[in-house]
Simulated scan of single mutants.
Amino acid sequence: MSDRQKRADDKTEVENNEHKRDFLERSGVGNWMRDALSKILSNRPKDAVDFLAQYFSSLGEKSNRLHRAYHHLTLTDYYQPMFASNVAVAYEVLSTSSGSRTPAGLTGIMYRDLLNLICRNIPPPLLEKFLSKIGPRDDEVIYPRVFHSGVMAAFVLIEYLKQTDDLFHLLISQSDTDRVDDELASTMLEELQEALAVKSSEPISILKAGSRLTNDTITETLMEILVASQREHRKMMTKEEFLLTSFNIYLKEVKPLK
């Protein structure tokens, strides 16, 4: 086998392994396997196989309830009137164990698992901060109004980050780089923070507040900054920095219910 062919085969194998790892992480199987092994080592059961069978049986029931609840939450957009009814159904699904017709109560760990499922495409560092702000203790009982508030905050966050991403791309469209002028970005973020500060108590108003950041506003601010400064080298802000700052502005407005 030639060196070129060997390198090609090695590259293919590496890519296949990466795809496998991506699948395991995306599906959650990797986390479940690690958790199962951790529980075996912690409990040291006499019959490890039976222990695993019971673990995955309960996990299957839990996963099914989570995905059924998530399905109800995605039947309609969160700003539609019917969404409140879908949230109530999702709460009932998670609160009722199999074999029981009456709600047993929703615990913090199941609530957190649902929020993780809803926000699975949010960058992990941001998701961790979000859950730390609104997430309860694992054994805490979650009441319907707390559940509705947290679910709404999660869906609004997803849309908010999408709008933030769109805003960043609108800003860099004014330049020929993948970064935005730091002063321009800071000005836009200050505008966003000011808009959020005067919002109403409705969560969806967080999204409406961003409408003031129009293309005309950005262009006007950009021209003022460029005319006022004669520096050749200006400080630039990356997309990650912009999203993090915008996220922190949102997180400050989230008021978790107890």
Results as ranks from 00 to 15, higher is better:
Asp181Gly: 03
Met152Lys: 02
Glu194Leu: 10
Tyr78Val: 03
Ile122Gly: 02
Glu191Lys: 02
Thr219Cys: 06
Leu196Arg: 01
Met223Ser: 11
His148Glu: 14
Leu126Asn: 02
Leu196Val: 08
His148Thr: 15
Glu140Met: 15
Arg21Met: 12
Ile206Met: 12
Asp166Met: 09
Tyr55Phe: 14
Ile218Arg: 00
Ile204Ser: 06
Phe247Tyr: 05
Asp216Ile: 11
Ile225Tyr: 00
Leu115Phe: 01
Phe23Thr: 08
Arg68Ala: 09
Ser200Leu: 05
Ile249Tyr: 07
Gly60His: 11
Ala228Asn: 12
Gly135Met: 00
Tyr79Ile: 05
Ala84Asp: 10
Glu128Asn: 10
Phe242Met: 03
Leu117Asp: 07
Ser58Glu: 14
Ile172Trp: 01
Val93Lys: 01
Thr96Asn: 03
His67Arg: 15
Leu196His: 07
Ala90His: 01
Ser229Tyr: 06
Thr102Leu: 10
Asn86Glu: 12
Val198Glu: 10
Thr245Tyr: 11
Asn43Phe: 11
Val198Leu: 06
Glu253Ser: 14
Asp22Phe: 11
Arg26Met: 11
Lys20Ala: 09
Ser149Val: 07
Asp138Val: 13
Asn43Gln: 15
Glu61Ile: 12
Asp113Pro: 01
Val93Leu: 03
Leu189Ile: 04
Tyr160Glu: 06
Met152Glu: 04
Ser97Asp: 11
Thr74Met: 12
Ser57Gln: 13
Gly60Lys: 07
Met33Asp: 08
Leu243Ile: 15
Thr96His: 04
Leu131Trp: 04
His148Gln: 13
Ser58Asp: 13
Ser97Trp: 04
Leu251Gly: 05
Ala154His: 01
Asn121Thr: 13
Asp77Glu: 13
Ser98Thr: 10
Asn116Ile: 08
Gly28Glu: 08
Lys20Asn: 07
Arg7Val: 04
Val151Tyr: 01
Ile204Gly: 00
Leu52Phe: 02
Ala8Val: 08
Gln163His: 10
Asp10Asn: 14
Arg137Pro: 06
Leu171Tyr: 02
Leu251Pro: 07
Leu94Cys: 04
Trp32Cys: 06
Val49Gly: 01
Ser149Arg: 03
Lys258Thr: 15
Asp181Ser: 05
Gln174Glu: 15
Ser211Gln: 15
Thr76Asn: 09
Thr107Gln: 14
Asp138His: 10
His19Met: 14
Ala90Arg: 00
Ile109Asp: 14
Leu41His: 12
Ile204Met: 08
Glu190Ala: 02
Tyr160Ala: 00
Val227His: 05
Arg234Pro: 04
Glu128Ile: 09
Lys162Arg: 12
Leu66Phe: 03
Asp9Ser: 12
Lys133Arg: 12
Ser95Gly: 02
Leu41Met: 12
Gln230Cys: 06
Arg21Gly: 02
Ala185Met: 01
Gln80Pro: 00
Glu15Cys: 09
Gln193His: 05
Pro124Val: 08
Thr214Trp: 04
Lys20Met: 11
Ala209Pro: 06
Leu170Asn: 10
Ile134Asn: 01
Leu244Thr: 13
Leu171Pro: 03
Lys133Asp: 04
Met82Lys: 03
Thr177Glu: 14
Ser98Asp: 11
Asn31Phe: 07
His72Thr: 07
Ser95Leu: 03
Leu171Ala: 02
Ala88Gly: 03
Thr164Asp: 05
Met236Ser: 13
Phe155Gln: 02
Arg65Asp: 07
Phe51Tyr: 05
Tyr91Gly: 00
Asn86Gln: 10
Asp47Gly: 01
Arg68Cys: 11
Gln5His: 13
Glu25Thr: 07
Asp35Glu: 11
Ser149Glu: 09
